[in-house]
């Protein structure tokens, strides 16, 4: 019974994803259908158009296995054997450095302003 519920709820999530894809192609914007779907579902939950019970089990289930769903895409790296070269290593190093700088900026700026507001209150 619980499994059936999970399957139906995942189908609902699929439906919202396709709705997002539809909106994307209709408006011809570079924002992906999945992100539009996320925003749609969040809005629908907030306005109580969709009760949270309708998707709760399905969403929990799907998010437990979230890393699994990336694997087919990441395996695609085998199509780029060129990256196993010195230039590839250099490029990877640049991307990594930039990523660490990004984490530092986003993390420190948000935490700084969060703590600052705590002091004011």
């Amino acid at each position: 019974m619980k499994l059936l519920k999970i399957i139906i709820q995942i189908a609902v999530l699929y439906g919202i994803y396709f709705l997002g894809e539809g909106i994307r192609s209709l408006l011809n914007i570079p924002i992906p259908g999945s992100i539009i779907g996320l925003l749609l579902l969040f809005t629908a939950l907030s306005l109580r158009i969709i009760p949270v019970e309708w998707i709760e089990n399905g969403a929990r289930f799907i998010l437990v296995y979230l890393p699994l769903f990336f694997i087919p895409a990441t395996v695609g790296v085998i199509n780029y054997p060129d990256f196993l070269s010195w230039t590839g290593v250099l490029l990877a190093g640049i991307v990594s450095l930039s990523t660490l700088a990004t984490m530092t900026a986003a993390g420190m700026v948000s935490q700084y302003f969060q703590n600052k507001r705590k002091e004011v209150h």
């Binding site: 995942i10 999530l13 699929y14 919202i16 994803y17 997002g20 894809e21 259908g33 999945s34 992100i35 779907g37 996320l38 925003l39 749609l40 579902l41 969040f42 939950l45 907030s46 949270v52 998707i55 709760e56 399905g58 969403a59 929990r60 799907i62 998010l63 296995y65 979230l66 699994l68 769903f69 990336f70 694997i71 087919p72 895409a73």
Partner: peptide
């Protein structure tokens, strides 16, 4: 498995909510 990625991103609305 790849086709589950779309709905999985949609499901992220749940923890955000």
């Amino acid at each position: 498995i790849d086709s589950m990625l779309g709905p999985a991103v949609v499901a992220l609305a749940y923890p955000i909510f």
